[in-house]
């Protein structure tokens, strides 16, 4: 026998989509929101994003080296986590906070439970909630220093516009009215990456176009939340209020980028709808009946914990089982 050809089980072709290409697409989809954050909050925001991203990547690398775990082809998932953590930081936060958050996300939420694919909650959200609990004050400071010294370079357009303390969602909670235009395009206070619904939707559209996410979770989430707002939000059928609620806080970022996280959302199609509905209800409860204005992060991490149960309940019916005859 001169030459033996390769033998392997079928199929012999692959689609070409890999974990790396998917994570790269998510990172690209996050760019518009990050870019607006940097425009809005200046170099300080860029620095925070870089610090959190690099910390995540470095933490993962060092952990895998120390544990002598096999390093496969690099899949960029830690970079996505790092970007999301950075996007969840107020622009005024001291730099060690994103560092602590990133290490927590990668080590405690992700690697300790087995690494990629094994974490039971979204690492970025786990870190965000951890930071909000531990450093509540620093994480809730949205006051931008105005027009002093290098403020414009450091804090971008926000320091010119004179964005005051409260985030638009907190203002809504306090019963004030806000500008929907500003909230939609992101000319408001808040954490770096969640102020602009428009930029997040742009990124989401890219992910849908690239078939990275399906719309089942975000649509079920946003629709359920809308119904909740109209029925139980305390403002009746006030669509301006509804639109403000949809565009503010972490809702858009959460619905399109965090709730759709593969690892921590149901794998079954029916489960994804149930998951979305659950998120809508929890977010409504937290926003309108809780102490905080914000409810998206807690809603998502609680729903993350229910994923195994949801999957069990929504296993698809195999083709032909109990069919005709």
């Amino acid at each position: 026998m001169s030459k033996m050809y390769n033998v392997s089980a079928s199929p012999h072709i692959r689609s070409g989509v890999t974990t790396s290409t998917i994570m790269r697409d998510v990172a690209i989809a996050l760019m518009p929101a990050c870019a607006l954050g940097v425009y809005q909050f200046g170099l300080r925001a860029l620095l925070i994003l870089l610090v959190s991203t690099l910390t995540c990547a470095a933490t993962e690398y060092i952990y895998l080296r120390l544990m002598k775990r096999q390093q496969g082809p690099y899949e960029c998932s830690a970079i996505v986590t790092g970007m999301l953590i950075g996007m969840n930081m107020p622009p005024t936060v001291p730099l060690w906070i994103p560092v602590v958050g990133s290490v927590f996300a990668i080590l405690v939420v992700k690697q300790v439970f087995g690494g990629l694919g094994q974490n039971f909650m979204n690492p970025a959200l786990g870190a965000r909630c951890f930071l909000f609990l531990c450093y509540a004050e620093r994480m809730n400071t949205f006051q931008i220093p105005q027009k002093v010294g290098n403020a414009i370079i450091n804090y971008g357009a926000a320091s010119v516009d004179g964005i005051s303390g409260a985030t638009p969602l907190a203002a809504l909670k306090a019963g004030e009215t806000i500008s929907l235009f500003d909230a939609f395009f992101g000319f408001t206070g808040g954490v770096i990456g969640e102020t602009s619904a428009a930029m997040i939707l742009l990124g989401a559209a890219y992910m849908v176009y690239r078939k990275v996410i399906s719309l089942r979770i975000p649509l079920a989430y946003l629709l359920t939340f809308s119904v909740f707002v109209l029925l139980l939000g305390g403002h009746g059928f006030d669509f301006y209020f509804l639109a403000c609620q949809l565009c503010t806080g972490g809702l858009m970022l959460g619905a399109f980028f965090m709730a759709t996280d593969y690892v921590t959302s149901p794998i079954t199609k029916g489960g994804q709808i149930v998951f979305g509905i659950l998120l809508g209800i929890l977010t409504g409860l937290f926003r309108f009946y809780g102490n905080n204005a914000e409810g998206v992060s807690y809603a998502i991490i609680i729903a993350n914990l229910l994923v195994p149960l949801i999957e069990k309940m929504t296993m698809p019916r195999p083709f032909g089982k109990g069919g005709l005859k």
């Binding site: 692959r14 989509v17 890999t18 974990t19 998917i22 496969g72 082809p73 899949e75 998932s77 690494g115 990629l116 694919g117 094994q118 399906s214 593969y262 690892v263 959302s265 794998i267 079954t268 199609k269 994804q272 296993m315 698809p316 019916r317 195999p318 083709f319 032909g320």
Partner: peptide, 21 residues
């Protein structure tokens, strides 16, 4: 293509013609 950990993306569920997981 090297095998790497499952990220639970659900693509396999979406394409299975027998509607399995």
């Amino acid at each position: 293509y090297e095998s790497s950990p499952c990220i639970r993306c659900g693509r396999c569920v979406g394409v299975c013609p027998s509607h399995l997981v």
